[in-house]
Design a protein around this nucleic acid. Structure first.
Lengths: 101, 101
DNA sequence: ATTTAATATTATTATATTATTATATTGTAA
DNA sequence: TTACAATATAATAATATAATAATATTAAAT
C-alpha cells in the first residue's frame, strides 16, 4: 500500500493560491470594485463612476480580475456587465466586510 | 445644523486600510506564518521550521508583520514569542481558512 | 457605411516588493 | 567574560506592480 504523502506541500500550495488571491484584492480600487460587485452585477461605466477611476484603469482592473478568475462578464446590448465569478469569492468579500465595515 | 458629509471618503479610506492589510497577507509565507499563529504563539525558530524559510526572511517577515500591527511579541528567556495582535486579524485568518482550507 | 458611446489594449515610466548575502545584536549559560 | 544560540538589521540586486497617456476595438443607432 502506498504511503500517504505528507501534507506540507498541500498546505504550501494552498498558501500560494490564497495569497495570490489576496494579492489581487490588496489594491484599494480593486477591493472597492469587488465590494460593489458583491451586491450584484454592474457595467463598466457604473463601476467607473462608483469608484471614480479612469476609463483605462477600470478596464485594466476588470480584465485582470476576470483573467485571474475572480470575475466573469456578460454582454447586454452595448454594455458589458461584470459580476463575481465564484461563490467562495463572495463569501470572502462578505467576511472582510463583516469584520472591517 | 451641519450637513452630514457623504460617505465616499470613508468607504475609500476603509478600502485603503483593508487593502493594505490584505497586501501584507498576500504573500505565501507571510500567510503561512499567520496561519500557524492563528493557533497560538510561536517562537521565531519554530516558525522558521514550520514554514521552511531562511533565518533572515522569517525575521524580516515577522518584524514587518509586527511593524504593521498584525503581530506582537514577548520575550521568554532566550526565545522571542510572536502572536497575533488583534482579534479582528484572527477572525480574518479564520474566515480565510474556513473558506479555502 | 458613418458615427458615437462603451470598452479594451499597449507602451512607457515610475515605484514597490522580494530574495539574498553578509553582518550585527542580544541574552544566557559555562 | 567568552562563547554560542537566537534573533535582528542593512545593503543590494532582481523582479513585480502601478499609473498614465495614447490608441484601438466593438456594437448599435443613425
Amino acid at each position: 500500500m502506498a504511503v500517504k504523502p505528507i501534507s506540507i506541500p498541500k498546505i504550501s500550495q494552498k498558501c500560494d493560491d490564497v495569497s495570490a488571491l489576496l494579492r489581487i484584492l490588496s489594491h484599494p480600487q480593486r477591493l472597492m470594485i469587488m465590494g460593489h460587485l458583491s451586491h450584484g452585477a454592474k457595467t463598466v461605466s457604473e463601476l467607473q463612476e462608483l469608484c471614480t477611476i479612469s476609463q483605462s484603469q477600470i478596464s485594466q482592473f476588470l480584465s485582470r480580475l476576470k483573467l485571474e478568475g475572480l470575475l466573469d462578464s456578460r454582454r447586454e446590448g452595448r454594455f458589458q456587465y461584470y459580476f463575481i465569478a465564484d461563490k467562495k469569492i463572495v463569501r470572502l468579500i462578505q467576511a472582510i466586510q463583516e469584520i472591517y465595515c
